[in-house]
Simulated assay, not measured.
Amino acid sequence: MAPSGIASVVGEHYALEGADLVPVSGGADLNASLWRATDARGRRFAVKWSSGGSPAGLVLPAALNAVRPGSAPEPLPARTGALWVDTGGARLSVMEWVEGTSALETPPGPAGWRELGQILAALHGVPLGDEALERVPREDFDPGRWAGLFERVDTALDAGPAEGIGRRLAELWSGNRSALREVHRRTIDLAARLRERDGLPGFAACHADPHLGNLVIATDGRPVLIDFDDAVLAPRERDLMFVLGGGVLADRAATEEQQGLFLDGYGHHRVDAELLAYYRGLRVLEDASELAGIVIDPASGEEERREAFGHVRGVFSPTGLLAQALSE
C-alpha cells in the first residue's frame, strides 16, 4: 500500500495527526510492511501492517515495559485502547520509534552486556497470569517446520547441477552435509524426548530472537530490545541460546567475557543442557535451510542471493552455529 493509503488507515484508528509515513525496507518478515511515521509534533513511530504471526510482538513489549520501563519500544494504543487493530485482512500496529543505532553497528560495552542480561531476566520474570499473554504462542517442541524445510533444501542441493552462486552453495553444503544431517537427526530425537520428559523447567515469556541485530543502543545509551514477532512462552533456554556458547552471529560471536557479563546481569540460572542443545540444533536447521532456500530460489535477486550465501557461510564457520551444535 502507498504511504498515503496507509496514512489514511492509521489516521482512522490512531491519534496521529498529520503523520508523514516513509517505507522502511530491509526487514526479514516477508508477511509485513513497515513504515516510519512522523507526526505533526515531530514524534516518530514504527507503523507495521502484518498478515502473519501473532499479536505477541505487541503484548510482550507492553508487559516488559510494565516491569522494566524503557527496555522495549512502547506500543501506542489505538483510539479504542487496543494494542493493535485488525483491518484489511491484516494486523495494524503503531509503536514508539527508538532513536539510536543497531548493536551490530555500535557493539555493547560491558555495561550493555549486563543490561541485556537484566532485560531478559525481567522479560523471563513477567507474570504469566495476565489475560493478554494468552495470545502468546506456547512452545510445543515440534521441529517439523524447520526439519521439513531442511529436508527439502538438502534434497534440492543434492539433486542436480547449479550455476554460479548456486554451485558454490552446493559445494559448501556438500562439505557440511553429514554434520547437518546429524544435527537434523539429533534435533528430532531431542524434540521427541522433550515432549515426553517429566520435570521440564517452568515456561517464561521469551523473545525468541534476541541477537544483537534486534538490540538498539538508544541515543541515551540504554539498550532496547526490539522485534518481538517470534515471541513465545517457553523455557528460558529459548533466549539464553542467543548468548551462551557464542550465540547465533558468527561474525559477532559472544566472547566468554561477554557471556560472563551477560550472566552477571541475568542472575543465577541452572542451564538445562538438553534444552539448550535442542534450541541450538533447531536454529541451525532454520538458518541454514532458510538462507540456502533464498540462494536457490529463482525469484531471489542477485544481491539477495549473495547476502544469504554469506550468512550460510557464517553458520558453517568455526564460530558458527553448526560448530556449536556439534560440540554438545
Results as ranks from 00 to 15, higher is better:
Thr155Gln: 14
Arg177Lys: 15
Ile217Thr: 08
Pro201Thr: 03
Gly164Glu: 07
Leu212Ser: 04
Ala218Val: 09
Arg186Trp: 06
Gly221Lys: 07
Phe150Arg: 01
Asp229Ala: 11
Asn176His: 15
Val232Cys: 12
Arg185Ser: 13
Trp173Pro: 01
Leu128Gly: 15
Trp146Gly: 08
Gly166Leu: 13
Leu200Ala: 04
Asp209Lys: 04
Ala179Ser: 14
Asn214Gln: 09
Val153His: 11
Gly144Phe: 05
Asp130Phe: 02
Glu182Val: 02
Asp229Val: 08
Arg138Glu: 11
Arg138Tyr: 04
Arg197Asp: 01
Phe141Ile: 06
Asp158Gln: 14
Pro137Asn: 11
Ile165Tyr: 00
Gly175Pro: 00
Arg195Cys: 03
Leu128His: 01
Phe150His: 15
Arg193Pro: 00
Asp142Lys: 03
Pro223Val: 12
Pro127Ser: 10
Pro127Cys: 06
Ala204Glu: 05
Asp229Met: 04
Pro161Asn: 05
Leu215Met: 09
Pro201Val: 03
Glu171Lys: 07
Arg181Trp: 04
Pro223Tyr: 00
Ile165Asp: 09
Pro223Asn: 06
Arg222Asp: 07
Asp220Met: 04
Gly125Cys: 05
Pro210Met: 10
Leu157Asn: 07
Ala147His: 06
Asp209Pro: 10
His184Gln: 08
Asp227Phe: 13
Ala231Leu: 07
Ser174Leu: 08
Pro161Arg: 12
Ile226Gln: 10
His207Met: 09
Glu151Met: 09
Pro201Leu: 03
Glu134Asn: 14
Asn214Ala: 10
Val224Trp: 05
Glu151His: 13
Leu194Pro: 03
Arg138Ile: 08
Val224Arg: 08
Arg168Tyr: 01
Leu212Thr: 04
Val216Lys: 05
Ser174Lys: 11
Ile226Lys: 10
Asp140Gly: 13
Ile226Met: 10
Leu194His: 08
Val183Trp: 01
Thr187Met: 06
Arg197Val: 00
Gly164Leu: 02
Phe141Tyr: 15
Ala208Ile: 00
Ala132Met: 06
Gly160Ser: 13
Glu151Gly: 14
Arg135Ser: 15
Ala192Pro: 07
Gly221Val: 09
Leu194Tyr: 10
Val232Asp: 02
Asp130Lys: 11
Gly125Arg: 11
Ala208Asp: 10
Gly160Tyr: 10
Val153Gly: 02
Ala156Pro: 08
Ala205Glu: 01
Ala204Ser: 14
Phe150Glu: 05
Ala147Gly: 15
His211Gln: 05
Val232Tyr: 00
Arg181Asp: 11
Arg197Leu: 01
Leu215Phe: 08
Arg186Glu: 13
Gly129Cys: 03
Pro210Trp: 05
His211Asn: 08
Ala204Val: 15
Leu194Phe: 09
Asn176Asp: 11
Asp158Tyr: 09
Cys206Trp: 01
Pro210Phe: 05
Leu149Val: 13
Ala205Pro: 00
Leu233Gly: 07
Glu171Trp: 01
Ala192Tyr: 05
Gly164Thr: 07
Leu157Pro: 02
Ser174Met: 02
Thr219Gly: 10
Asp227Gly: 11
Trp173Thr: 07
Asn176Thr: 02
Asp140Leu: 07
Arg152Gly: 01
Arg168His: 12
Glu171Cys: 12
Arg135Trp: 02
Asp158Thr: 14
Thr187Gly: 06
Ile217Lys: 03
His184Met: 02
Asp209Cys: 09
Pro201Gln: 03
Asn176Phe: 10
Glu182Thr: 11
Ala159Lys: 11
Ala205Tyr: 01
Glu163Leu: 14
Asp220Gln: 04
Arg177Val: 07
Arg168Phe: 02
Leu172Tyr: 00
